[in-house]
Design a protein around this nucleic acid. Structure first.
Length: 284
DNA sequence: CATATGTCCTGAGAGC
DNA sequence: TGCTCTCAGGACATAT
């Protein structure tokens, strides 16, 4: 489930490739269904080999390798994709290898479930697919005013709306629960019933939780899938307040964490820290 | 237009 | 032990 902190950790983990020229693109033979590579591999190779990686970036949950001449390679890990410079968890799920000139180690896209994708796009295609019209502002940098402007008239429940990448980019199922707990907001609160102080709390909690999770190099859940570029586990899972903790004690109060389902996805919250009705602060 | 639902994929774990 | 079933949740296509 790589979300913003995990993809940002991947990006930092492959910073060493900046300035290198791509020498070859390798797809290991496999009996698994191949991941989506676009354009198809022969054309992908012709356009990528010999090109220089000028920079790395991130658009929400996607990793970007900026090439010369305006092209970019966009890696979308989705559920179980990883970018690795070290030995992978196994070899069966290696999907695409990038070998580099100049003695720089190769790096790999590894994906157990194979829902991820790798695309090479022109500058125009990049804007069309990943520009402001398609993907909302980054969750780390959005202001509370913009967050409120983009979601405040929606009738959706706030937990569901936070997953909408057109509204705000980078928040996924895990961090949505965590940041709502930090903000003290119930996941079922309709967006259009949230008040100004709550949007401010939400934005602050979002930035704090995501920044902390980056410092801890993301969350590796019990299935162990997520690893950083060196194939090491993240450690933010030890800081989780609610995610995957149903029935356990809240670490902030005496309450018990509850699991509910919203849009076929699990949400976790503390009914005590996150009341369904807004609690008005008493005036001083 | 906004919102809701179904689909893709693999492997882990439960139940028998 | 080995089978079947359910579940996990990214983004997107399609339906309402």
């Amino acid at each position: 489930m790589p979300e913003l902190p995990e993809v940002e950790t991947m990006r930092r983990g492959i910073a060493g490739v900046i300035g290198s020229q791509i020498r070859a693109i390798v797809r290991p033979r496999s009996k698994l269904k191949p991941i989506e590579i676009s354009p198809a591999l022969p054309r992908f190779r012709r356009r990528a080999v010999g090109r220089t990686i000028l920079d790395t970036g991130r658009v929400g949950k996607r990793l970007v390798l900026q090439l010369d001449r305006g092209d970019a390679i966009v890696i979308e890990p989705r559920m179980t994709g990883l970018v690795l410079v070290a030995d992978p968890p196994n070899r069966e799920h290696l999907r695409l290898g990038f070998s580099l000139a100049g003695g720089v180690p190769e790096f790999w896209f590894w994906d157990r479930r194979g829902l991820g994708s790798v695309r090479l796009v022109s500058a125009d295609e990049f804007t069309g697919r990943y520009g402001p019209g398609q993907i909302g502002p980054d969750a780390l940098h959005i202001s509370s005013e913009e967050l409120a402007a983009r979601l405040g008239r929606s009738r959706r429940e706030i937990k569901v709306a936070l997953l909408d990448q057109k509204a705000v980019a980078g928040v996924g199922n895990l961090y949505a629960s965590e940041l709502l707990h930090r903000a003290g907001i119930h996941p079922r609160r309709p967006c259009d019933r949230l008040h100004g102080d709550e949007w401010r709390r939400l934005q602050a909690a979002m930035r704090q939780v995501l920044e902390e999770a980056i410092l801890y190099e993301g969350s590796t859940l019990s299935d162990g899938t997520y690893r950083n570029a060196l194939n090491h586990s993240g450690s933010y899972q030890h800081q989780h307040r609610v995610y995957d903790r149903a029935g356990e004690a809240c670490r902030t109060c005496d309450g018990r964490i509850v699991r509910i389902v919203q849009c076929q996805r699990s949400s976790f919250f503390c009914p005590n820290c996150q009341p369904l009705r807004r609690v008005r602060q008493a005036k001083a």
